[in-house]
């Protein structure tokens, strides 16, 4: 009969080494798929789609410097389904007639902005961020001007992408 750990110290050491090795092997073999699964979203490409916002002719008729909130519904593949992402586009016409397509999310931490006609400002309800009608920060903690949706005009129709211009870290959206 093989010696027990009590009869032979070297046998004891051997058993301890085997126990340690097996624990390590099983631990790593389980940790690898778990890490893969948990980190999986890091390797996924975001689904980016074009969606119609409206006719340029209609949007060009809005009053200058009065923001108009226009909802869009992006249909994107997410996991095992196609999801609808409802988002607000703030359309603003400046005095030269140029159109802007802002996101309504504050650039500080993403709260939804309110338009205050009396003060001619977008106010953030969360930490007091303020933007003027053309998206510049005029108060509070936001670090940068409002995000602008990626957009293009085709056959008189405005198309919007679920992506912001000039947004390398993909904040918001």
């Amino acid at each position: 009969m093989t010696k027990s750990s009590e009869e032979s110290p070297s046998r004891r050491t051997f058993m301890m080494v085997v126990i340690g090795l097996i624990s390590a092997i099983v631990g790593v073999a389980l940790a690898v798929p778990i890490l893969g699964e948990v980190l999986s979203p890091l390797f996924k490409k975001r689904d980016i789609v074009w969606t119609e916002l409206g006719k340029v002719s209609d949007l060009e008729n809005i009053e200058p410097l009065v923001p108009k909130f226009v909802p869009v519904y992006f249909r994107v593949k997410e996991g095992w389904t196609v999801n609808t992402l409802p988002r607000q586009v703030i359309v603003v016409k400046d005095i030269t007639g140029k159109l802007y397509f802002f996101s309504n999310q504050c650039t500080h931490l993403g709260c939804p902005l309110h338009w205050m006609p009396a003060r001619q400002k977008f106010m953030c309800p969360c930490h007091g961020g303020m933007f003027n009608v053309l998206g510049k920060v005029v108060g509070g903690p936001p670090p940068r001007p409002l995000f602008v949706w990626v957009h293009k005009i085709e056959n008189g129709t405005v198309l919007i992408q679920n992506k912001f211009l000039d947004n390398p870290k993909e904040r918001g959206v």
Partner: peptide, 20 residues
């Protein structure tokens, strides 16, 4: 209506999800 597709997603689209 979703459970089977979620399982399918784990198997085919999640990194190493098939092993898990």
């Amino acid at each position: 209506p979703m459970a089977r597709n979620a399982t399918y997603y784990i198997k085919h689209h999640v990194l190493l999800g098939n092993i898990l």
